[in-house]
Every structure is written in C-alpha cells, then in structure tokens.
C-alpha cells in the first residue's frame, strides 16, 4: 500500500458516499445516469469474485464488500425507491455498445485465459468506459448539480491517483500491470473535459454547465 493508492481508495469511497448522500438528501436521482451505476455494479461483481477465495488484507476485503454493497444499493435506489425521479429520457446511452466490445476485448487481450482472469480483465476494461453514459447524459442535459460534480470529481480523481500508485509501484516494487495501466489512463482521460470544467467553474462557485 502507498499514499497514492490510499488517497485514491478514499476518493473512490468519498465519491460513492457523496452519490448516496445526494440521493438520500434530495430524495432524487435527477441528473444521475442509472446506466453508469449498473456498469459500476457489474465492474465490482466481476472484479471481486475472489472476495472469498483470496484474502489479501482486512482493508482489501472490507473495501470490496463496501463497494459491492453500495453499488447494489445505488442501483436499487435509482431503479426502485427513487425511480420516479430517474431521468430515463436523458439516460439513453446504449450499454450494449460498451459491454459487447469490452467483453470481446477481454477475451482477446488478457494475462491468461482463465475464467477469473477474463472476468477481472472485463471488469478493468469496463470500468474505464463505465462513466460514458453519465458524461453523455450531462452533455444532453447541459448541466449538473454541484453535488453531482463533486461526485464525479472524486470518482475521476481516484483512478488518476491510481496511475500515480502504479508509477510508485513500478519504481519501488517493480510491479507493473499493463492492462490496468492502459485502462486506467483511458478512464482518466475521459474525465479531462469534466476536470477542466470542474476546476474553472465549480471551484469558482459557478454551476457546472456543459456546452450542450
């Protein structure tokens, strides 16, 4: 463990808590893409299959349980409890355009051709594009609530910090995972436009508005 990965995990945790807080306090999931949340739940479900077979540390297991459970709660809140506030008309990104290519790529490009490894690879590739429905929805609505922009900033920062973690681990531990690094860079690059808007607008107290 290193400081970059720890802050990254805390940023990821914060993002999930911010989203749950937003939905619970406003009793609404307006402006949130349910499709991205479904993808995140799928990412955790396919990545943490080793939860009961490979024990890394109490921290690792606790966080995995937290991520799996909160992602399922988030999907439940969006599609059941607060369904009336779910903006389906703007959440129209076709998930099959992401899941099918990512699934195919995971079959073709992986570290070894075993079910667990292919599912882990699928999860890594899927996570790198899972935010696209959310970004797409925001470009259609042309704006986002401030709390939602904080959620996205924390979520985007987590993988950016993981890139620093991989640099650290490469130089100090000789650890290197090309699949995770490439996917992590793609994932972080997808946030660049949002990061720019967040830093130039939200941090100046303005509302986040995207060029629709």
């Amino acid at each position: 463990m290193n400081i970059f990965r720890l802050i990254g995990d805390m940023s990821h945790l914060l993002a999930i808590v911010l989203l749950l807080l937003k939905m619970w306090k406003t009793r609404s999931c307006a402006g949130i893409s349910g499709k991205s949340q479904i993808l995140f739940a799928l990412v955790f479900a396919t990545r943490y299959l080793d939860l009961f077979t490979a024990f890394i540390s109490a921290y690792n297991s606790t966080m995995k349980l937290f991520f799996i459970s909160t992602s399922l709660v988030t999907v439940y809140l969006m599609y059941f409890k607060f369904r009336a506030t779910y903006d389906a008309n703007h959440d129209t990104f076709r998930l099959e355009f992401l899941v099918v290519p990512v699934g195919g790529l995971a079959f073709l490009v992986n570290h070894n051709f075993s079910p667990l490894e292919i599912l882990w690879t699928f999860s890594i590739y899927l996570e790198s594009v899972a935010i696209l429905p959310q970004l797409f929805m925001m470009s259609k609505t042309g704006e986002a609530e401030t709390i939602t922009s904080h959620y996205l900033f924390a979520l985007g920062s987590y993988r950016a910090l993981y890139i620093l973690n991989w640099v650290f681990r490469y130089y100090f531990e000789g650890f290197f995972d090309l699949i995770a690094v490439v996917a992590g860079c793609v994932q972080t690059i997808l946030y660049c436009d949002f990061f720019y808007l967040y830093i130039t607008k939200v941090l100046k107290g303005k509302k986040l508005s995207l060029p629709a």
Partner: peptide, 10 residues
Amino acid sequence: DDAAPEKDEL
C-alpha cells in the same frame, strides 16, 4: 500465458 501480476488492488 505469462503469469498474471498479483491482484492486491481494489
């Protein structure tokens, strides 16, 4: 099939 890097990250 090279050995996959250890999976100790979230």
